[in-house]
Amino acid sequence: MPAAEEAYGLIHYDFQTDNVFWQEKSGQLSVIDFDDSMYHWFAMDIAAALADQLEDESPEGEAQLQAFVRGYRSVRPLDEAMVQAFPRFRRFAELYSFARLLASLENSELKEARPLSGWTG
């Protein structure tokens, strides 16, 4: 995918509603938790924010997705190829999360996973 200036740059990467706060006094939104910021396509942040809608194949989920895309496009250009790539961005997020979990276990003393006592799972 082309990394054109209007489509690629520094993103939040964990852009979820629990990281956005409304400032009643100033009438502005504030965003927190930039720990996972990275250079990526801007559409990655959209795909992260719309994870539930992307997994919801119902007409309501599709309507919510399209409403968000229309709203985004009213402020900033969003190429249709990027919208079509949303599932790829979600897959990247899943693989990246898995890789981070594996890395966190790399130097752990966990030798063998054992079930909790009494668990029959």
Rank of each mutant, 00 (worst) to 15 (best):
A63Q: 05
D56K: 01
Q23S: 12
E55T: 02
F92W: 01
G27Q: 04
F68K: 02
D35E: 15
E109R: 10
M82Y: 09
D56P: 09
M38Y: 14
S37W: 03
M82E: 13
Y39F: 15
V31E: 04
S58L: 00
F34R: 10
D56C: 10
R100S: 07
Y96A: 11
V83R: 02
A99R: 13
L50Q: 14
Y96L: 09
A47H: 00
E80D: 13
K111P: 00
L105H: 02
R70A: 13
E94F: 04
E24A: 15
S104R: 12
V20D: 02
A51P: 01
S74T: 00
A93N: 10
D35V: 03
Q28F: 07
E112I: 03
Y39D: 14
Q53T: 00
E57F: 11
D79L: 12
K25N: 12
I32T: 12
L65G: 04
A99S: 14
Q23Y: 01
A49G: 13
W41R: 13
E112D: 08
K111S: 09
D33F: 12
E109V: 03
V20G: 10
D33E: 05
E24V: 02
D56S: 06
A67L: 04
A63C: 00
D36A: 12
K25W: 09
E112Y: 06
L105T: 00
A103R: 13
S104P: 01
L95D: 07
V20M: 14
H40E: 14
F42L: 10
G71A: 07
L95Q: 02
L50I: 08
M82C: 05
L50G: 05
E57D: 14
F21I: 08
D33Y: 10
E80I: 08
L78W: 06
E94D: 08
L101A: 09
Y39N: 15
Q84V: 03
Q66G: 01
Q28R: 11
E24T: 06
R73C: 03
L29V: 14
L110C: 05
L95S: 03
S74R: 05
S58A: 06
L54E: 11
F89L: 13
R76F: 01
A81R: 12
D56M: 07
G71Y: 04
A43N: 09
E94H: 10
M44S: 15
L101F: 02
S74W: 02
R88N: 11
I32H: 01
S26G: 02
Y96P: 01
L78P: 08
R76P: 01
Y72W: 12
Y96N: 10
S74V: 00
D52N: 14
V83A: 09
R88G: 15
P77E: 09
L110M: 04
E60K: 03
I32R: 04
Q84P: 02
F86E: 10
Q64H: 05
A93R: 09
S30A: 12
L110N: 00
L54P: 01
F21P: 04
I46V: 15
Q64T: 00
L105G: 08
Q23M: 07
V75P: 02
V31P: 06
E94R: 11
V83F: 07
Y96E: 13
V20Q: 06
V31I: 15
F89M: 05
S30L: 10
P59G: 04
L102S: 09
